[in-house]
Structure formats: C-alpha cells, structure tokens
C-alpha cells in the first residue's frame, strides 16, 4: 500500500518535471527572450543590457534551468517583469483568492450534485427527475462566459441585488471576498454541479439495477436503509474520479469566470501576464496549475484505493 502511494507520488513528480521542462523549453525556443518580449520597442542598448543582466539571461540555458528549477523547489519563483516584485508576492494573494472561489464552489457544488443525482436516480422518469434533469442539461450546455454574463444582466443590472463585477484589491480579506463571490460561485458551480449530478445519477441507477440491491430488497431491508447501506457507498465510489476531473476542469473554468467578473484570482493573472508578456510569471503559473492538477488526481486515486475493499485487499495480499 505504502509502496503504491510512493509510486503514485513519484509519477506525479515526474509529470511536474516534464511540465517544467516543456514550459522552459517553450519559452527558450520562442524568438527573442523575456527581455526583448517585455521591452518591445525599447529593447536595445542599455535598457536591454540591464534587463538581460538583471534576469541573468547571459548564462547558458541549461544553467538557467537548473538555477530556476532549484529555486522553484525551494518555493521561490523569481521576479516578475511588470511589477518588478517577487513572483511569490504577486501570486500569494491571487492563489488565496482563487482557492476561496474554488473551495466555496466545491463545498456547495459537490453535496448539491450528490443530492440532486440521488434524487433524480431514485425518482427516475418521475416528475422530480424530469425537472432536475432538464435544468442540469440546460446549465451543462451553456458555456460559462454566457451564463456568467446573463447572471450579471439579470441579478446585478435588472434586479440590482448584487454587484456586477468585483471591485476589490487582490489582498482583500476573506469577509470582503465573500459578499463579492456569490455570482462567480453560482456561475462556476452551475456547470460543475450539473456534470457531477448526471454522473451520480447514472451511477446510482446502475447500482439500483444490480443483483445485490434486488437481493437486499428480497432480504426485507427497508427502502432507505437499503439506499444508504447498499446503494450509495457503491454508487459514489466511481464518482470520486469524476469529481477530481471536475475540480481540475474548474481550473480552466475559473479563468474565464474570473475575467468576466473581474475577480482578482489566478485565472485573471494568467490572462494578464500573458498579455503583458511577463514570461517568468507565466512559467510560475504553469507549474502551479500543473501541481494542482496532479495533486487532485493523486488524492482521488488514493481515496478510491482506500474506500474500495476490492482494491484494498488486493494491495494487502500483494
């Protein structure tokens, strides 16, 4: 078991190493370098030399990679070009803001998705299922930049209940954030919840049709007891990996939603730093997003492994 966990972690680290190589090489093979890209028309003479010196671009690429990588391992991403401040300081609040947005969406979205999925499955083809399923399919098919814009139009402009865009500094406190994130959270969790609810629904329906559920009924197990003891644990197990994928998808969804709502999170930073041609920040973001992706999938794999008695005993026996 432990060996397996270590193996998975090792594989994750290799993935991250490859991602870092690709982003570094990608930046290297682009015409010009960080300085010429950043300085644009002023990229000549003393300004260029100073920039090159400051970023240490005069040493060979592999040395710079090793240098950069060893700093990243220590948690230091170097300096951003635009703000000329440590990337860590730029990233810190942004990471926090995005985490707040994502985790609130997850905390609301996942339980909601499970409940909706179970309701639709147990009342299959009846009124609750038809209603909820229609809504979920609807919210699944609308891309988030449209649903987000519509939300702003309806809730913020027509009804005037909530601010349309988020106008707070990136280092706002948690409480300041909360009142501002309601609309973004709704926009994000709509699609996520819909996806997961569909998944939970089909999983529960499949388990309900299984021989062991029929057996439980014929054993005289009361309906709700059967649902909770015999159906749900087996139905939700395969859902874990889908949840992980959905969360990973959230990273992409967050980018668009953050831009629409002007939310000071990681997603907006990605767009900003790309349009500012701030290559060191882009590199740092690539690594961070990749780590989150790898991390979430790792956790999901391990959870499935722990919760599934089949896999568990398989590992112990080996």
């Amino acid at each position: 078991m432990l060996l397996l966990i270590l193996k998975r972690i090792g594989l994750g680290l290799i993935t991250l190493f490859i991602v870092s190589l690709i982003t570094f090489v990608g930046v290297e093979v682009l015409p010009g370098d960080a300085c010429t890209t950043y300085l644009e028309r002023e990229a000549y003479g003393a300004a260029l030399d100073a920039c090159i010196k400051r970023l240490g671009l005069d040493v060979p690429a592999y040395e710079r990679y090793l240098d950069w990588a060893s700093n990243v391992v220590r948690g230091d991403f170097g300096y951003s070009l635009s703000g000329e401040m440590p990337i860590n300081e730029v990233l810190g609040p942004r990471v926090k803001n995005s985490l707040v947005l994502a985790s609130v969406s997850i905390l609301i979205g996942i339980p909601l998705a499970i409940v909706l999925g179970i309701i639709t499955a147990l009342w299959r083809d009846k009124l609750p299922d038809i209603m909820i399923s229609t809504i979920t399919i609807f919210s699944m098919t609308i891309p988030e930049f449209i649903s987000a814009t519509l939300l702003i139009l309806i809730v913020a402009i027509w009804l005037g209940w909530l601010p349309g865009i988020v106008i707070i500094p990136s280092d706002a406190t948690f409480y300041e954030l909360l009142s501002n994130i309601i609309l973004p959270v709704v926009a994000i969790s709509m699609i996520m919840t819909a996806h997961m609810a569909r998944m939970v629904r089909s999983s529960v329906i499949q388990v309900m049709a299984s021989d062991y559920v029929q057996m439980a009924i014929l054993k005289g197990v009361p309906y709700w007891k059967m649902v909770f003891r015999h159906v749900l644990p087996n139905a939700l197990l395969p859902a874990i990996n889908v949840v992980a994928l959905t969360i990973a998808w959230l990273l992409g969804g967050v980018v668009v939603t953050e831009v629409v709502f002007n939310y000071p999170g990681l997603g907006r930073l990605v767009i900003e730093s790309i349009s500012n041609r701030d290559l060191p920040v882009v590199q740092a973001l690539a690594i961070i997003l990749a780590s989150i992706y790898v991390g979430i999938n790792l956790i999901a794999d391990l959870m499935t492994l722990m919760l599934n008695p089949r896999l568990k005993s398989l590992q112990i026996r080996k």
């Binding site: 021989d211 062991y212 029929q214 014929l218 003891r229 644990p233 087996n234 197990l237 008695p309």
Partner: peptide, 13 residues
C-alpha cells in the same frame, strides 16, 4: 431467497 449468482448478489462493500 437464495440468488443465482451469489458473487453479484452480495453487496461488495
């Protein structure tokens, strides 16, 4: 009831 395929009729978890 004693089912046909006990492997599938016993709840796996």
């Amino acid at each position: 009831m004693i089912p046909q395929n006990a492997g599938q009729a016993l709840t796996p978890n």
